[in-house]
Design a protein around this nucleic acid. Structure first.
Lengths: 322, 322
DNA sequence: CTGAAAGCGCTAACAT
DNA sequence: ATGTTAGCGCTTTCAG
């Protein structure tokens, strides 16, 4: 079992209080005594226990990170950002990857409460879990939504500015001379990418983009005479699907069809894929989630933070007609 | 601030001990009282604090996971396995992603000690950190090496059976009639894949595989008249590099060159990549790391666990000569 | 400059 | 059947 200050005190024939203060460099303790205390503690292999301190102070110095689907590589960088920023603020990150079941998620959050986390960062959850989270956020533990939202709520978010992302995609297509465009989102997940995209297209007096929400719909749309010449996909994986379908019906990318993805996953940079895409500031999303959460923990008011995506131009887009 | 049993006791005019026992369904408390206690606790929004309990029991119910490079998608699945297995054993996972600096890593581990984690799972660290870890593992906190090792040590591992992986790759090539083979590992990282590969090739009386540890070396080797017709790459990303180089010098994959990767990253299944590769049981690696760590925490002896990789045959390998 | 003691939330042994 | 109390490791206040 671990060495305690009590043991050190006994060993040195000092009072526990003196040892405690000595270790924390309290000015009221004589320099010589401090040195001896620190020295002895080191020799005995003492490591401060956060239990005692946390119990006393009421501060656990832990935040919880709740991530519903860690498989998406998107979150790997976010996690790194979270872990590093938390660490550099002397906070620990308690990690949880619940199964996508309501009961499971609530159990996880309760577990966080048991551990007395000071705040929770959440990346996705079942809709039913929101009610619990919002209550928690209101009277108790601050919550920040990170990376993506399942549902709009009054909880502050740190997310990519999807509306701007949609605008940027549309502008790129428009600059390349495209007129007939489409949007592909087989997950049917609500987001602002479509809004930004459509708004920009319409404001330029071009025909409203076709919205495809299934593989079949996309295929059908691409096979028509009056087919779109540019497609904005919900995410990189969807963009790959678009390219495969285009390939299967004999459409060359980018000569006959321009494609833009979203996320800039690792593989998108491969020469054989070479996808033009909107890169999200993943690491920064994680970092700012922590920054905002800590502010919230300290009682500061914060706002939802939107991070601009960046257009990475590669080989899947070109001037209309090649 | 959170509701405590003390508050509940005051509210109900009961003793704290009674409330504590009532909540934990102690048989000595009357059923009626128990119900009232549970009911009141619920109404007051009570959540048990692990501080008190941990302080009393000396058990934190937390393990630490130390992951040096979370960007590799390889670890995303491992983390999921770890988090889920830990959760189902009522353990929390304190996550850390230190920068690759010796001092930083030690600081992180000390932080784990402060939080009184009961065990540590580690995926990669600087060589200098090993000494500290081994000491910790010996007299104090159990450690498990997960997914990969930086250095061989006396700490038990949960890793893929790389030797067998190398054998499987060699056998596949041999079955396809290949005779001249090569191994490509630009990271120059030591591992048993090469051993298993080479052993099998030599035992079949075929010429020992050429080992390439740089892009240039690989290119040179592939340009010779007596070039290898099959290459085993250290990981999928390296296999992609092999394919790109092959392409750049006009060698068709798989007709003129067979390639096997390692890991089965997401993109390897893409039609445009279609890489034959050795899949690691990532989720299982995470899960068993926790299982073994908990055993170690409970004082059981455990052994290094090797998980068999599985050959996923796709389109990057074919019979010699097409 | 250092010691003593109370208290953070909880549990368990003992007392009523 | 319930109450009382001591103590887990630490900080802090107050005495000496």
């Amino acid at each position: 079992m671990p060495v305690t200050i009590k043991m050190i005190a006994k060993e040195m024939r000092l009072a526990v209080g003196t040892v405690s203060q000595g270790l924390r460099n309290d000015p009221r303790i004589a320099e010589a005594t401090k040195r001896r205390v620190v020295q002895t503690a080191h020799e005995m292999g003492y490591v401060l226990s956060d239990f005692g301190r946390a119990l006393k102070s009421g501060k656990s110095n832990i935040i919880g990170y709740f991530l519903i689907d860690i498989t998406k590589s998107f979150y790997a960088d976010i996690m790194k950002g979270i872990a590093r920023e938390a660490t550099s603020n002397n906070y620990g990150v308690l990690f949880s990857a619940p199964l996508q079941e309501y009961a499971n998620e609530i159990a996880q959050i309760k577990y966080f409460e048991q551990k007395r986390v000071e705040g929770i960062i959440i990346s996705g959850c079942e809709p039913e879990t929101w009610e619990y989270l919002e209550r928690l956020n209101k009277n108790g533990i601050p919550v920040i939504v990170c990376g993506d939202y399942t549902k709009k709520s009054n909880i502050e978010e740190v997310v990519t500015d999807d509306f701007t992302g949609g605008q940027i995609a549309a502008e790129h297509f428009i600059n390349l001379g495209h007129q007939k465009m489409a949007y592909y989102n087989p997950e049917k997940k609500f987001n602002y990418r479509l809004n930004g995209f459509t708004d920009t297209v319409i404001n330029t007096k071009l025909p409203s983009p076709v919205v495809c929400d299934s593989k079949d719909g996309l295929k059908k749309s691409l096979s028509q005479a009056n087919r779109p010449t540019a497609i904005f996909a919900y995410k990189d994986l969807d963009a790959l699907e678009v390219m495969e379908i285009a390939n299967s019906i004999g459409l060359k990318v980018p000569e006959e069809l321009s494609v833009i993805g979203y996320d800039d996953d690792v593989y998108s940079a491969f020469k054989s894929i070479n996808l033009t895409t909107l890169r999200q500031q993943k690491n920064e999303i994680g970092k700012l989630s922590v920054v905002n959460l800590l502010k919230k923990i300290n009682g500061e008011k914060i706002k939802t933070t939107l991070l601009k995506p960046e257009l990475i131009i590669r080989g899947s887009t070109s001037r209309k007609g090649g």
